[in-house]
Amino acid sequence: MDYKVPKQDINTDPLLSKSPDFNRKSAVMKTDKVYKCEIINIVELTEFEKLFRLKIADRTERELFDFRPGQFAMLEVPGFGEVPLSITSSANNKEYIELCVRKAGRTTEVLHQARLGTKLGLRGPFGTSFPMEEMAGCNILLIAGGLGLAPLRAPIYWASENRNQFKEVHVLYGTKEPAQMLFTYQYGEWEKVNNIKLHTIVEKGDSDWKGRTGLITELFDEVTIDPQNTYVIVCGPPVMFKFVCHHLNGEGIPMNRMFVSLERRMHCGMGKCCRCMVGSTFTCVDGPVFDYWSVLNLKEAI
């Protein structure tokens, strides 16, 4: 008379075979297990933004962490919580990854106090990416507002490292004030070494500002657009990409060649918790990168 329900080890479950498991391909599903990493450099970009360079401690795990431009990672500050951050370094770089963190809540405030050598946790990469290979042979317009330059830095690296594959590469960047501009120390390199044309504008200049003032859409007069041979990547606040995409749609750029990176507060990053839903779409797995047509179809997107 035996009625004992046997204990079942889920590590042999057939469902496991299709689990990406952050490419660990281990027998145990570790969707919530982080890669331990160490802060190996910190750059103070502005008063509110810092760039953290992170090195995954375990060599095997470091090799497994393979991302594409546009994807994001969840950065765990043990004890305080996780924050979703788009990866801003080169996808080609297997040694370390870089994340740009703005002070926006308590977790990021704590993170800003972290020092070199601090151990943090990383999950990911998550989400969709910019189709860089598809853009080969064309011009690329990268348009960023404010913090939106951080997600664009990965495709800028891609374009720089494969510069001969693309025609003209333009970066259009606008912020409220000059002091908010990110990665200013790299502008010279982008222009002189990588042959990228950088166009900047601020809403309100200061005494040192010699560039243009106004809204980002005003920068379009500096660029001649060939609509049949141009791809666009936009990242910034919803009002900005709404106007930008509307303008470029009028210029004749096909909707499926304009890409937008959306921002919502992800809790799980894995298409389950529903916190980042826009309409019926998960920003974390169906996005964060969407083409303009998909964005127009999203309820609640703009």
């Binding site: 500050v77 020092r115 151990k119």
Partner: peptide, 8 residues
């Protein structure tokens, strides 16, 4: 937290 270099 000590690991962060923050002394509680």
């Amino acid at each position: 937290m000590e690991y962060l270099g923050i002394e509680p």
